[in-house]
C-alpha cells in the first residue's frame, strides 16, 4: 500500500518534470520554434555554438528597456566596466541605476563577459578586438565584418533603426542564437 503510493508519487513527479522541462529551458521564448535541436549541438569542440542567454531578470528589466538586452559574452569585461561607469551619460541617455542594482548587474556582466564565455562568437570577438575595449558591440571589427553586406538604407528602416536592435533581424537573438538561418531582415 505504502509502496504503491510512493510509486504513484514518483510517477507524477517525473511526469510533471518532463512536462515542465520545455518551459524551464525556454521560458523567455517569444519567437521562432524550429531551432530546439540547436541546443543539442551546442557543445562541440570544447566551446559552445551559441551565447548563453541573458536570463538575469534584473538585467533584462534595466538594460533591456530601451534596447535588446545584449548577452554579456558580446563584449570584454573592460567594455562593460566603461559602460557601467558612465550610465548617467549613456549614449546621451540617462540610464543611471541605484547602487544596489548597478552592482548586481555588474556582477552578472563581469562574470559572463567575453573572457568568461565559452561561446565561439566570444572567442572571435576577443581575437578581432586585439585588446581594444569599445563601448559598442557594433564597433567590433568582427561585427563589422559579419554585417558588411547590410546597407545603411536597410538599417535606416523604421522597423530596424539601429545596429543596437539585434533582435529586429536575428529572430532568435534572445536565446543567444545568431545563426544565418534565423535571420529575417524586416521590411
Amino acid at each position: 500500500m505504502k509502496k504503491s503510493l510512493s510509486k504513484t508519487l514518483l510517477l507524477a513527479l517525473s511526469l510533471s518534470l518532463i512536462l515542465l522541462l520545455p518551459f524551464i529551458a525556454f521560458s523567455d521564448s517569444d519567437d521562432d520554434e524550429g531551432e530546439d535541436h540547436e541546443w543539442h549541438s551546442n557543445l562541440r569542440h570544447g566551446y559552445s555554438k551559441h551565447l548563453s542567454p541573458a536570463v538575469d531578470p534584473l538585467y533584462q528589466q534595466e538594460c533591456g528597456a530601451c534596447h535588446f538586452a545584449y548577452q554579456a559574452g558580446l563584449l570584454p569585461k573592460a567594455s562593460w566596466e566603461k559602460i557601467m561607469d558612465g550610465l548617467d551619460q549613456h549614449f546621451e541617455e540617462d540610464a543611471s541605476l541605484s547602487s544596489e542594482h548597478a552592482s548586481a548587474i555588474q556582477e552578472y556582466l563581469y562574470a559572463n563577459s567575453a573572457e568568461n564565455s565559452s561561446a565561439r562568437f566570444s572567442k572571435r570577438i576577443l581575437r578581432s578586438l586585439e585588446g581594444a575595449t569599445p563601448l559598442r558591440i557594433s564597433d567590433i571589427p568582427f561585427f563589422k565584418h559579419e554585417h558588411r553586406e547590410v546597407g545603411t538604407r536597410v538599417l535606416a528602416r523604421k522597423s530596424i533603426r539601429s545596429w543596437a536592435n539585434c533582435s529586429a533581424c536575428h529572430t532568435t537573438a534572445k536565446r543567444g542564437i545568431y545563426d544565418e538561418k534565423y535571420i529575417q531582415i524586416p521590411r
Binding site: C66, H67, F91, R161, S162, A164, N165
Partner: peptide, 8 residues
C-alpha cells in the same frame, strides 16, 4: 510604440 533611437 517604438524607441526613437534604438528601434525597440
Amino acid at each position: 510604440g517604438r524607441h526613437e533611437r534604438t528601434g525597440k
